[in-house]
Amino acid sequence: MKYLLYLFSIVLFAKGCGETSAETETTKSAQDDISIIYEASSRGFYQKIQLSKEEISIPKDRNANLVLRKTCSKADWNEVVQLLDKIDGEKLGETSANEEDFARDAAIPATLTIKYKDKTVTSKTFSHENPPTTLAPLVAKLQAMAKAVENQ
């Protein structure tokens, strides 16, 4: 997980410093290997958002019979990378939701998965309506991007 944090730091700091072409290529290739999956599901609700540097895709049902796709803008991707840099991979597994809420359908369970090359970090289940404070800005950005895709 620390490796993931170092990667995000390198991506962010390399942008602000005077970069050489080798540093630029390393940063670009590192960003190409990042993908994010947000999934929230209950009996009557389903949302899955898959994001990479190239595109955002939103399956409209659990079987992915219809998938909406849109190219991810450079500005949106840069904002997502900045938000990822603020997330501590060690604390990604913490949850702020009460497990009893999931048992009685008081909250929609959601998870966030961040993949980098062959490494995968998945959060513990949290409430779709009330994500942990560390994940809230990223989840809000993902949902805003998904809404823009659905409204196109």
Score class of each variant (00 low, 15 high):
T27C: 12
E99L: 12
D85K: 14
E100R: 08
Y6R: 08
Y38I: 06
Q82A: 15
I10V: 11
E25P: 03
S52V: 00
D32I: 01
K124S: 14
L4M: 15
L142G: 01
I34R: 04
E100F: 08
T120C: 05
D105T: 07
Y38S: 05
K119N: 10
T26V: 13
L7V: 06
T26H: 07
L92P: 01
A40M: 04
Y6K: 09
Q47R: 15
S9N: 13
M1T: 04
S57G: 03
T24F: 09
A97R: 03
T120E: 07
D85L: 06
S42C: 03
F13D: 05
V11R: 02
T27R: 11
A103C: 04
T95R: 09
E99M: 11
V149L: 13
Y38V: 02
E79P: 05
E99N: 10
L142Q: 00
N98E: 15
N151Q: 14
S123Q: 08
P132M: 05
V67K: 08
E55Q: 11
T113R: 00
G89F: 05
K117M: 15
I58W: 04
D105K: 12
G18M: 06
S96V: 02
T71G: 10
S42F: 08
G93K: 03
D118P: 01
D32M: 05
P109T: 01
V80N: 01
V81L: 10
E25S: 11
C72A: 09
D76Q: 14
E79H: 13
F102Q: 04
R62F: 11
V80S: 08
C72T: 15
F45L: 11
T111C: 01
N130S: 11
K117C: 01
T26Y: 11
D88F: 14
L92C: 02
T125E: 14
K60E: 14
K147M: 06
A146Q: 06
P59S: 13
A75Q: 15
Y46T: 02
T133L: 07
A64L: 07
M145Y: 04
A30D: 04
K2I: 12
A106K: 13
N65G: 08
A140M: 07
Y38D: 00
Y46S: 00
Y46K: 04
S29V: 11
G16A: 13
L5F: 11
G18Q: 13
V121I: 07
A22W: 12
A140I: 04
A144T: 07
R62C: 11
